[in-house]
Design a protein around this nucleic acid. Sequence first.
DNA 1: CTCTTGACCATGT
DNA 2: AACATGGCCAAGA
Length: 106
Amino acid sequence: MNSFKKVCKVVFKIPKGKVLIYGKIAEISEIKNPRLVGSYLHRNQNPVKIPCHRVVKSDGRLASGYAFGGIKKQKEILIKEGVSFNLKGRIDLKKYLFTSQNCLAD
DNA sequence: CTCTTGACCATGT
DNA sequence: AACATGGCCAAGA
């Protein structure tokens, strides 16, 4: 299984109302550089199969230069999912960070 | 093959 | 909290 497949699987397993940061995905997917996670998704956007809107940065902010509909669009979706943002548009990772254990398991 | 770029992260200031 | 710096590795040009 290649890294891309792992990333897909992990991101796909993020439950509604939870978010996951790139670094965590990289860790789970056994990818050395978290940037690669973003790169994979960016080049291979697949919103239908992959809920990339539940993927945020380690700060709890949304990824910059998001291409699937804009930052605010993503924010709306997350809010609709049940994730709350603070005034600065930041997510409370303490509450919403999905601690994925064995996402790679089928 | 080499050089640049990137949906990032940790650390220091 | 915000900004700056260095590092990491794969894909594109």
